[in-house]
């Protein structure tokens, strides 16, 4: 779906992005993870040409985006920013309708699509005529998401979308984010510095440092098969929790009644813990998890 080849961006002598290549499959959620200044945001912004690359090629649906007119390209790519970037002089409704207007949709189509989206995002229709400064941070972020999704673009770019939210709101939005069917059909590239978030939302992760991709793979691959010390150090602090969150019931080949194999060990633990009658199953889960870890380490 998206193919990035030997992409570089130099600002003067500084190589912000240094010869990176990666692919994103259709409907996949790829996370660009790294510390500030590692080049992840620059990489993201080259995908919709907010920043023009110094070298390299980018293909979306096999089309070289550098040969397309930037405005047209961008109208087909959703974009969500950390500070939401809502127009303060537009109402929520007008904000959401910006791209349809640029694409010259008729009014009915836009309205129909807006009400559909608002419902999915748990936003009341009353907000349509309200200015963004009257909304809470979480609501603003949802409006920002609605604005990016309204024209149903196949690709969604997200630049630290939940970075400005407090932890409680963030957890709630994460849950909604994962449940939203709109997003399951999208190819998403998301930038974050939050390891937890990356592991929770990402199908695959590109860990970046100093303009280069250090390792790319599934969360489990990064955890259990770190390519070098940088990767393992990066994940060290929250390792245990990340492991619980990234290993699925199916991975450790344990059947526990009431849960299917796509559930993470973490969520099963949460639910068993609060039920004293099932402590035996909890024990079984734990030992299976540690066996799995041992096995991974020696493979």
């Amino acid at each position: 779906m998206i193919k990035v080849e030997h992409l570089s961006k130099h600002f003067g002598n500084v190589k912000a992005v240094d010869d990176i290549s990666f692919n994103v499959n259709e409907h996949e959620n790829l996370i660009l993870l790294g510390t500030s200044g590692c080049g992840k945001t620059t990489t993201l912004k080259m995908l919709n040409r907010l920043i023009e690359p110094t070298h390299g090629k980018i293909y979306i649906n096999n089309k070289n985006i550098l040969e397309q007119q930037p405005e047209i390209l961008r109208r087909g790519i959703g974009y969500v920013l950390q500070n939401n970037g809502l127009f303060p002089h537009y109402t929520v409704g007008e904000n959401i309708a910006i791209v349809p207007q640029l694409l010259k949709w008729d009014k009915k189509q836009t309205e129909h699509r807006m009400s559909e989206l608002l419902e999915k995002l748990h936003l009341s229709k009353d907000y349509l005529n309200v200015y963004p400064n009257k909304l809470s941070g979480g609501q603003q972020q949802r409006v920002g998401l609605a604005r990016a999704l309204v024209a149903d673009p196949p690709v969604l770019l997200m630049d630290e979308p939940f970075g400005a939210l407090d932890n409680v709101t963030k957890a709630k939005i994460h849950a909604e984010f994962k449940a939203l069917d709109e997003l399951k059909k999208k190819t998403i590239i998301m930038v974050t510095h939050d390891v937890q978030e990356a592991f929770e939302l990402g199908d695959r992760i590109c860990l970046m440092d100093a303009g280069k991709i250090v390792q790319q793979g599934t969360p489990a691959e990064l955890l259990f098969k770190p390519k070098n010390k940088f990767v393992s150090d990066f994940l060290q602090e929250q390792r245990l929790q990340l492991e619980f969150r990234s290993v699925l019931l199916g991975d450790i080949k344990q059947e526990i009644s009431g849960f299917d194999e796509n559930e993470t060990v973490w969520s099963v633990m949460e639910k068993l813990k609060s039920n004293g009658d099932r402590s035996a199953e909890f024990e079984r889960l734990m030992s299976a998890f540690y066996q799995y870890k041992q096995h991974q380490a020696h493979e």
Binding site: E71, L73, R74, L81, N83, G85, L86, F87, G144
Partner: peptide, 27 residues
Amino acid sequence: VDASVKEAATAMGMSKLQILFKVELPL
């Protein structure tokens, strides 16, 4: 004018003139 608002306008595919007249000048 807030840089993130301008960035959002660009990223949504507004042309430079549209950004000027719909975003920068009104704000």
